[in-house]
């Protein structure tokens, strides 16, 4: 339990996927303009991250047993792509309300580096099945926290008088820099809580 909680908090706060590991920057900059799209996108990411981890973990065991771990990247990206399509079809057919909320974001997630990233990091860090699931969940929630916070920051930016040269993308990145700096404050938190 302690390990699970520490993993979860690490992934959400200290090692936030977007703000510390730079995974999933495109949606972070692209889809964070409005709060509700930010939430929808993040929910889809959490869903796919956990599902992808659950599916790729046994596949990796299979690859390892056959000594063909070098096929990891190619197999995982295909599995994730197929999974996203499958989830989309299933949701469309059986859970229409959920599909309406998440559906449009799903195809964009195939090439989201946070999803492939979390799967590869779980293996690199040698987590077992449940640890992997918890870490992915944490990574997804961390993604959501960063997206939602940043959407708030951007809404405030709208009404500001920004120097001409910085208008648009540059000021967004500078704002991201400040949000990321605030997350540095969490650095010692988890270690001290569970030490």
């Amino acid at each position: 339990m302690k390990i699970a909680l520490s993993l979860l908090l690490t992934a959400i706060l200290t090692n936030n996927f977007i703000l510390c590991k730079f995974l999933g920057i495109c949606p972070f900059l692209g889809v964070s303009k409005k709060l509700n799209t930010a939430v929808g996108m993040s929910a889809a990411v959490i869903f796919v991250m956990v599902l992808a981890t659950a599916v790729t973990y046994p596949i990796n065991l299979l690859l390892r047993a056959n000594n063909i771990e070098y096929l990891q990247t190619i197999v995982f990206i295909l599995v994730i792509a197929a999974l996203v399509q499958l989830v989309e079809i299933v949701l469309k057919k059986y859970m229409v309300s959920l599909y309406n909320a998440l559906g449009i974001y799903l195809p964009l997630i195939t090439t989201n580096c946070a999803v492939l990233g979390v799967v590869l990091l779980n293996i690199d860090n040698g987590y077992n099945f449940w640890q992997s699931i918890v870490y992915s969940l944490g990574g997804g929630i961390g993604f959501m926290v960063a997206m939602v916070m940043f959407a708030g920051v951007r809404e405030r930016l709208e009404g500001c008088d920004i120097p001409k040269a910085l208008q648009g993308l540059p000021i967004t990145l500078v704002a991201a820099s400040l949000v990321s700096m605030s997350f540095l404050g969490f650095a010692g938190l988890v270690d001290n809580m569970f030490a």
Partner: peptide, 11 residues
């Protein structure tokens, strides 16, 4: 660190 990355990229 991460904030510096965003900042330099923005500039």
């Amino acid at each position: 660190l991460a904030p510096g990355g965003f900042f330099v990229f923005g500039i």
